[in-house]
């Protein structure tokens, strides 16, 4: 056996390579099974990243269907409420380069919340049916109101209202929500003013 191998170097090389290939292939296969990183299905991970406004601006009836569609290969830049940060996060997850927001589906705007001008409401329940997260309370011929904490600002209730009594108002920041803003990197740009930070003292 040995002499056969030593005489036929070609055969020996072939055997060695095949042997090594099988060995390492087996090892890798074993390792892939044994040390498998358990992770959520991709649709769920995508759904996690979407803002859950359920607004349908992407053209899908809710965030989950859009997540499913992205998983099937759809573009990732169709979500205006999530904006660039969501696009970046999805791009990061899928390991692709992040495109900018597709303007066709809307622009990134500040977050708003629906308010019903209550004395104008006629109690038609149309908005209640439109709300994707059941955040409007009311009954037929009785005044409706929005549960502000649950409102995602999706805009879907504005359209159906026959008397146009729903306003989308930006969320007002109060003293408890206030947070420090990051300093401006003045020196990295061109400015060399005396103060590197807030100039809004005036």
């Amino acid at each position: 056996m040995m002499s056969l191998l030593t005489d036929n170097t070609m055969l020996a090389a072939l055997l060695a390579l095949v042997g090594l290939g099988t060995l390492f292939g087996g090892l890798l296969g074993y390792a892939a099974e044994k040390f498998k990183v358990g992770s959520d299905p991709i649709v769920q991970q995508l759904d996690e990243l979407l803002p859950q406004t359920q607004c349908g601006q992407c053209g899908f009836p809710g965030c989950r269907p859009y997540a499913q569609s992205i998983a099937d290969g759809d573009a990732i830049n169709k979500c205006p409420p999530g904006g660039q940060s969501t696009i970046n996060a999805i791009a990061n997850l899928l390991d692709i380069s992040a495109p900018s927001l597709d303007e066709e589906h809307g622009e990134e705007e500040i977050r708003t919340i629906a308010y019903i001008r209550e004395d104008e409401c006629i109690g038609c329940t149309k908005c209640i049916q439109a709300c994707p997260v059941d955040a409007i309370l009311g009954a037929a011929k009785l005044m409706h109101t929005v549960i502000a904490d649950e409102c995602t600002g999706c805009d879907l209730c504005v359209e159906p209202c026959p008397v146009d009594c729903i306003d989308m108002l930006p969320i007002v920041e109060n003293i408890h929500q206030w947070q420090w803003s990051a300093p401006e990197h003045s020196a990295d740009l061109i400015a060399t003013t005396a103060s590197g930070m807030h100039e809004d003292a005036a």
Binding site: D47, C63, R64, D134, A135
Partner: peptide, 19 residues
């Protein structure tokens, strides 16, 4: 804020799915 947004998103998701 990011955590808070995530938490509200989870609630919205739950409400949406419930609906």
């Amino acid at each position: 804020n990011a955590l808070a947004t995530k938490a509200t998103a989870a609630i919205s998701r739950e409400r949406f799915e419930f609906r």
